[in-house]
Design a protein around this nucleic acid. Structure first.
Lengths: 356, 356
DNA sequence: ATTGGCACTCTAGCAACCGGAGTGCCAAAG
DNA sequence: CTTTGGCACTCCGGTTGCTAGAGTGCCAAT
């Protein structure tokens, strides 16, 4: 799909003109005509010459005109080529970097951290920011607590990985005394701390089937742990990523048609397809960009998605990024997304690595 | 502000016409003319007569016409009078009630409960649903747990009231051993369970100042409890209510101007003013309605807000409702909001009352 | 009190028109 | 062979003028 084939037939000059055209279109939002380009390109060429070159660029499929007597604007391939080969990213100001660090530095709760990152992205870009929940291969068990709430209900507190805490209320099949519960907790904490949740579940099941005699206790425990393990997924399935500043997208003319917005927002709510798309970004390191239809996803037709993955302990666990109109200032957005991913990773790591 | 003065000068007939006019305008969205009204009212009056009456209604400030040769539509006072005196609410279907009960019945986590309620409201009405976090006079302490995460960090788990659980990470001034922490927790749990958080804090401070000698421990504990008490507020201040289905509002023509939507959504984000408005609904029992500018709040200009408070243990603790265009089907929305408030209260109560 | 009649007003929609912007092509110039 | 000026052509967006339709307000008649 993506034409990264560099278009070697294009002269330096043509490439430069394409660059200027895209930049100007991004800033102005209006199709760019030959006269404007001739003035702006600094090449002292007459509009007529520019027209010839623009015709070439159009033949290559890099630009089009919306109608006969309008200027040209980049196609998806045009954006792609621009981003891959022509773009000069604007480095971020020291002040911005420091502010980002400050904002992320004071937060303990990992979920707050994600939300803040997303909000920073949407605030800075005036577009929609998004951050997926971290997904780990292995979820490391750190400790568990049971608090009896009533006859029927037990509150489970599960601490995993970094300082991720999950609460859940379960309804055991039979009553447990407070003493029993602490006993179970102590057992689990002492035996399984530091191990991965899936393997704990397995090992519990195994243990259960081997010692059939004193089944009573063990069985119940195992069942509950299984429940817990499930919960991690459940929570993530319910809310696999967070999105902030969606409403910023209403302000862009190119997206503001009712129909378009409706489709877009309902896509955000559906989530499944979005998740699938974001998952594809997880493997790539560095910034990955989907332009318009490149995502293969109808709802994002006039949008671009700029993403980067963030890592904990050198393992990519999540993706963050920005959704906005295809006509966005990539040279600013890209470094911003890049930085945010790195800083979010760093912030999460810092908590994660603190010795237990 | 609100003209509840019943307009006794209005004939039965005029009132009936007003009713029909409002109903028709709500359904059709178009200004209603004399001919249409004459056909629809079932009074076998000629359009000319209707016109005379409409002129009266206009003199009373109940209806206006957007321009000379359009029909009439209700003013804010017109809606007010309609709602207060003319409206015949449509009772809800048994099936709906049962579905609502089912949806709310299976949820343990209070926060999920609130979100589900809000979502049901927005889904049913195709408008925006909203639910404030419950606010209690007294927050009842039920139990506390400390889990040491690292040298610097201690995870606090606080259970209050019903099954409301709050996690927080604190950074004590000095190290605590695991044993110390459990000791503190045990102490607090045994002494203060069932008491109200504010008074606990007070009593701790008092205790602290009376026994200056063995300050060390007590002081630290007191400080941390103070922290906790603060947190409850902090959380609510950050997210004082939840809003679902905001984007539904884009589908209404009367709100769909860019400017209007921008104002509305930024009002949702600001929250403070909204909170203030919602607080005013807390005291009222039953359904309370703000029509358009009645809220005194610029951003809700063309909107109405239908609210009801929900209670736990007979104490109104929160407000829920629906925001939509002034032109909404009140006869359906009102009973829906009413029901949801009652069921949400019931669901919360059920958890709350279960014996500890 | 109610009604039909009538003049009046305002809007929405449609067609016609025009200036501006930009293109494509061609022939001349470098 | 590239670059350039010239020119005819196209298309869009805004403006104008017009008409049909809907609805009103008022008046005189019932």
């Amino acid at each position: 799909m993506s034409d990264t084939s560099k278009f070697p037939e294009l002269s330096e000059r043509a490439q430069h003109l394409l660059k200027v055209l895209v930049e100007r279109y991004i800033n102005g939002g209006q199709p760019v005509g030959s006269r404007a380009l001739s003035r702006e390109a600094g090449l002292s060429l007459s509009p007529a010459t520019i027209r010839n070159i623009m015709a070439d660029l159009e033949d290559c499929g890099l630009i089009t005109s919306p109608h006969t007597s309008a200027g040209r604007l980049p196609t998806v391939s045009g954006y792609r080529f621009f981003i891959d080969s022509l773009l000069t990213v604007k480095p971020l100001g020291q002040e911005t970097v420091r502010q980002f660090q400050r904002n992320l530095g004071n937060i303990d709760d990992p979920e707050d951290l994600l939300e803040t990152a997303s909000r920073m992205l949407s605030d800075m870009t005036h577009m929609a920011g998004l951050v997926t929940m971290p997904r780990r291969e292995a979820i490391i068990f750190r400790m568990i607590e049971f608090l009896p709430l009533s006859e029927q209900r037990v509150l489970v507190i599960l601490v995993t990985n970094a300082q991720e805490v999950q609460n859940r209320i379960i309804h055991p099949a039979r009553r447990f005394s407070a003493a029993e519960l602490t006993a179970v907790a102590n057992y689990l904490n002492s035996v399984y701390a530091g191990k991965d949740l899936a393997s704990i579940r397995e090992s519990l099941l195994q243990e259960l089937s081997s010692t059939r005699d004193q089944m009573d206790r063990e069985l119940i425990h195992a069942a509950e742990i299984a429940d817990l393990a499930l919960q991690c997924d459940r929570k993530r399935r319910k809310k696999p990523f967070m999105l902030t500043g969606e409403t910023n997208l209403m302000d862009f003319d190119e997206l503001a048609s009712k129909e378009r917005l409706r489709i877009l927002f309902s896509a955000f709510r559906q989530k499944e397809d979005m998740v699938h798309l974001l998952d594809r970004c997880l493997e790539t390191s560095g910034v990955k960009i989907f332009i318009g239809e490149e995502s293969g996803y109808q709802a994002l037709d006039q949008c671009s998605l700029v993403t980067a993955s963030y890592s904990i302990e050198d393992q990519a666990v999540g993706v963050l990024g920005v959704i906005g109109p295809t006509r966005m200032e990539y040279e600013h957005v890209i470094p911003l997304v890049d930085l945010t991913a790195k800083l979010l990773g760093a912030a999460l790591n810092q908590k994660s690595l603190s010795p237990s």
